[in-house]
């Protein structure tokens, strides 16, 4: 994930966290759309506070010191990806931010980064197999019979 996107996500999640700090058990949902045509963060976050509290949030008020975690979600063409953020507040300041972006660097979203990074690709315009002179075809057209019959069983069960 690009550095700007990481910063954006942290920034947005931090805003969400600060506005709900010092409240226990609050689940806050915010939808923030990024600009059209981009796959920037579309933040849906839930906040779990790890401290107990007494006061209700008021703007400009004191925020209770503590460590807060939140899960941010951003949009990719095949669905939402998750990113975890941990923020530490002390004396109304963020003193530490860490993100758990293992899902991004574990290959879940690399395909998109990879794809966009190379400024590819022409869309494919397939040709009918009969119109092309080939000796063999490489694909995955042949699924084992056992697999197919298992699929059929499931479909039949689902109908029952």
């Amino acid at each position: 994930m690009s550095q700007q996107n990481r910063t954006k996500i942290i920034g947005l999640i931090s805003i969400v966290l600060i506005s709900t700090a010092a409240t226990t058990g609050v689940v806050l949902i915010r939808n923030m759309q990024s600009g059209p045509g981009s796959y920037g963060p579309n933040i849906v976050s839930s906040v779990n506070t790890t401290t107990t509290s007494g006061s209700t949030p008021v703007s400009n008020a004191n925020y209770k010191d503590g460590t807060y975690t939140a899960t941010g979600s951003f949009y990719t063409p095949s669905g939402n990806e998750q990113i975890g953020v941990t923020v530490t507040l002390a004396s109304n300041k963020i003193t530490n931010v860490s993100i758990d972006d293992s899902s991004i660097y574990s290959g879940t979203s690399f395909a998109y980064t990879d794809q966009f990074a190379h400024g590819i690709n022409a869309a494919v315009d397939g040709k009918n197999v009969d119109s092309v002179n080939v000796s063999r075809v490489s694909g995955a057209s042949l699924t084992p019979m056992a697999f197919n019959s298992a699929l059929d069983t499931i479909k039949n069960d689902a109908r029952a």
Binding site: G126, V129, N133, V134, R136, S138, G139, A140, S141
Partner: peptide, 26 residues
């Protein structure tokens, strides 16, 4: 099943469109 080894004589192998098996993408 589409995984193959080819010997000395060159062969043209079609790349099957996974979305439509009647087509080749290359």
């Amino acid at each position: 099943g589409g995984d193959m080894v080819i010997g000395n004589k060159a062969m043209r192998i079609g790349l099957e469109d996974p979305r439509d098996h009647s087509k080749l993408i290359g």
